[in-house]
Amino acid sequence: MQLRNLSSGSRQLSLFEHYINDIVRGKWFIAYTVLLFALIYAVLMFSFETSQAVVGVMNLVIFIVPAVGLFFTSMYYYSRREFMEFILSQPVSRTFVYFSFYLAMSLAMIFSFILGVSVPMFIQGFAPEAIKMSLWGVLLNMIFVAISLMVSVLADDRVRGLGTVLLLWFFFTIFYDAVLTAVIIYFRDYPIEKFIPFVIAINPVDDFRISTLLSTDIAAMLGYSGAVIKHFFGRFFGVLYVAFLQSLWVLIPFLVGLWRFRKKDF
């Protein structure tokens, strides 16, 4: 049925439709969305004030969203490789195929984020926070789907691909902060507060974490560094810098993956 669509007029749209139908109806996707909804709902139920709720949700999001974005994309890519090879034997542009896959995957992840995170926040009466959270959800999912797709295209071997993705997840959620902490301790005699905002803003997970913390009561506990970084993020330049870095996190993996995908010998 899908193939009939492919041979007809709007090939890209129908391929995108196929992918998104396939992803959204998959049991893993449904299970993930339901689980996310349940977890966020539970966190919100046991939070008595906005600050606590937002930080609780953030804690879950920085743990789960990068992981699922990375692993789900890779696993899905590898499991549908034969289908992709078959599609590529048809008269379709490789860019179209790649783009359809990326778009379908990101939209599906964003969809599940909205259902699993933003909707429970709305239900529990945290509407303004939910909107901000949704924007970050869109950005984080676009970034991690792009990175994971790039890795999957680059690595033919499924085990190597998933291994790399695991390392990347570890890097973004833990290792980057560990290195930064070591740098802070090692360079304690230097005025590193001036340069820390530039470095910390590179990691999208840290960006999300800090911008969320700054919007809550906890901002007061970040002390002098918090004041510096609030000043940094509060200015036009800071916002521009973060927006630029985050768009690089989407664009570079996307383009590298595309470049490899177009030349790749399947």
Binding site: V55, M58, N59, I62, F63, T173, I174, F175, D177, A178, L180, T181, I184, I185, R188, I192, E193, I196, I200, D206, R209, I210, L213, I218, M221, L222, G223, Y224, S225, G226, I229
Partner: peptide, 17 residues
């Protein structure tokens, strides 16, 4: 750590800490 290296407060709520 935060008391001695003030900038580490930026790592609050991170999974590393």
């Amino acid at each position: 750590l935060i008391e001695n290296y003030e900038a580490i407060s930026l790592m609050l709520e991170s999974y590393f800490l």
